[in-house]
Design a protein around this nucleic acid. Structure first.
Lengths: 183, 183
DNA sequence: ATATTAATGAACAATTTGTTCGGTAATGTA
DNA sequence: TACATTACCGAACAAATTGTTCATTAATAT
């Protein structure tokens, strides 16, 4: 990718983040974005078809990183604990959220959180799917598999929502404990 | 309220519902709404400050009705079953959703479902709050009350989401069973 | 019967969107 | 270094949308 393209894309994302922390997504105009990014109007449209596509790619880059980390750390953790528990993975995820990515959390707790939580959920779904077998023991037999999967995801999202709304006062360890407690 | 006002308001709501079933909220313009409602532009703005206020009042009227029914039926149910179980209330809510209000469900399952689920959640919160004591027995002692409340709400919303996504194939009885099963 | 209030419709400025195009400058490659 | 490619510029553009104004008409409540 051309360095100019990278720089422009970066500038757009930065301006976008900046605006997102101040106002609702719907209220943000392309004019504001390009003003903040200091680029021409035509340039914006040569990068992104619409504002919605910008959001989509933005979220993909944002969450792709954190969930890739989880995926990669998964084997490592299995190694350390030498057990089948899925707890380390979620603990690690909560830790990652609290410590390493204030950027992401600023967005998850912003006025646009529903927007980001939606995208977060999509990524979470993939992660949980690959760990579904680890929850099997807690599942009642009469529940449909897909209902059970949906419930795990909802519970995680609910836990995260509560933690964020609650200013993340609790430690990742405690939150992980709560998460498994209610499951 | 003046009959003309009522009629206009009704016409706006009807046109709005109509459009909501076809496209995303953000894509709907005031022009389309007034065209469908067959009223003048100035008239619309004399009723609603903005499109967002229209949505707000629309949701309030919509969900206010269903949750009021629940609230009123609550005593009745307690009477019939002569027990403290909260199950009848939620069963009744699922039944109400499936049978009596295709209008509401069309919206909850439309492209705008996130929008309506948000408002639904707000109303649900109030309902659950007044029944919190009935869930006490299932709660672990070390969980904060507010976390527990949040989890009940998330679980209900998750159940509802799954049910709607799943075209409501299951009976309200089964869904209620699932709901209490995972709780 | 009358005063009040709501709806009309047309016109209005202001904002925003998405596109076009010739010119300029940075970039990757040979 | 020289060259061809490609991204950016920026100004201008039509089209759509927003939200307001105002004089006129018609329905309503009492």
């Amino acid at each position: 990718m051309d360095r100019r393209q990278r720089k422009t894309r970066e500038a757009i994302f930065n301006s976008f983040t900046n605006l997102l922390s101040k106002k609702e997504f719907n209220q943000i105009t392309v004019g504001e974005i390009i003003e903040g990014a200091d680029i021409g109007r035509a340039t914006f449209y040569s990068h992104f078809e619409t504002k919605d596509f910008l959001l989509k790619e933005f979220c993909e880059e944002l969450f792709c990183h954190i969930f890739d980390t989880e995926k990669n750390s998964q084997n490592e953790h299995r190694h350390i604990f030498e057990c089948n528990s899925s707890e380390p993975i979620f603990l690690h995820l909560f830790k990652h959220l609290q410590q390493n990515d204030n950027n992401i959390l600023a967005l998850l707790s912003s006025q646009n959180n529903e927007l980001f939580l939606r995208y977060f959920r999509i990524n979470l779904e993939t992660l949980i799917e690959s760990h579904l077998s680890l929850f099997e023991s807690k599942k009642s037999d009469n529940l449909p598999d897909l209902f059970w999967k949906n419930h795990i995801i909802s519970t995680f999202m609910g836990t995260l929502k509560w933690w964020i709304d609650n200013k993340m006062k609790e430690s990742p360890e405690v939150i992980t404990e709560y998460f498994f407690e209610v499951l």
